[in-house]
């Protein structure tokens, strides 16, 4: 496989996989809530985000497979790569924790994805343009949902505020990557500006202190390994099967 293969004609494969892997692992975490959410209405809302993220992962994997032209498919990419071949943002694989952590992760990731998808608004690659425009809509919906909850938690009960503050601490080590992750054709600097703006507006409304970014980087490699062991278990048991 050539490292220079371009996806959608413009996107380096590593970038496409980074986006796809992030979508897939995040969707996996969201789907773990299905049937276990704090209210049935919320189950349905989380599932909508998960469905959007899986849809995006599939589109990207398919585009990668097409660009490679080596017989790989969305499923070989998702089910038959080893954990250390995945290049997701670390925050996507972190275990769910409580609903405050889930909401905060959604807030961060949707704000990040908005900045990514909107960053492709001026690309000449038609397919990527269309895909990014659709994905941006979904990301904005998710951001609104997560941001509403962050505000309810921050400005809700004492317990919800304490849980939100704890979530902020737990996820802090993963923020730096959201700010400086490199993607070709989408400068980290302009993305991080849009990201910070959204998050700060939300935190202000939630009466929470502004986003604090530590210098340390957290790892979720162990959680990713466990996640993928579960996700890939059946497919790998029957490597030649079609489903």
């Amino acid at each position: 496989m050539a490292a220079t293969t371009l996806v959608f004609g413009v996107l380096p494969q590593a970038d496409a996989l980074r986006l796809a892997d992030t979508c897939l692992l995040w969707a996996h975490r969201l789907s773990e809530w299905c049937g276990h959410g704090p209210a049935i209405e919320e189950d349905i809302a989380l599932t909508n985000t998960a469905l959007d993220a899986i849809g995006q992962a599939r589109a990207l994997y398919q585009a990668v497979a097409l660009a490679r032209g080596d017989g790989s498919s969305e499923d070989t990419l998702a089910y038959f790569r080893d954990p250390d071949e995945f290049c997701n943002l670390s925050i996507a694989a972190v275990a769910n924790g409580d609903y405050a952590q889930t909401v905060l992760r959604s807030l961060y990731l949707s704000a990040w994805f908005i900045s990514v998808w909107e960053g492709f608004a001026h690309t000449n690659a038609i397919e990527l343009h269309r895909f990014a425009a659709e994905s941006a809509k979904a990301a904005r919906m998710c951001f609104r949902h997560a941001s509403d909850w962050a505000v309810r938690f921050g400005d809700g009960t004492g317990e919800s505020r304490a849980r939100m503050e704890r979530a902020l601490l737990l996820l802090e080590p993963f923020v730096l990557e959201l700010l400086d992750a490199e993607l070709t054709g989408s400068p980290a600097q302009s993305r991080s500006g849009s990201f910070r703006q959204r998050i700060d507006a939300c935190f202000a409304q939630a009466t929470l202190s502004p986003l604090s970014v530590g210098s340390s980087r957290g790892s979720s490699a162990a959680e990713r390994r466990a996640l993928l062991t579960e996700m890939q278990s059946l497919a790998r048991l029957h490597p030649t099967a079609r489903w």
Binding site: C34, D75, H238, W243
Partner: peptide
């Protein structure tokens, strides 16, 4: 719901998730 995370292909995963969501 217990099989959403283990569905053997991305297509099946997506469909099952939508199906279980409908039940909700």
């Amino acid at each position: 719901g217990g099989w959403i995370t283990r569905a053997p292909s991305l297509k099946r995963k997506e469909v099952l998730l939508a199906k279980v969501q409908d039940e909700g």
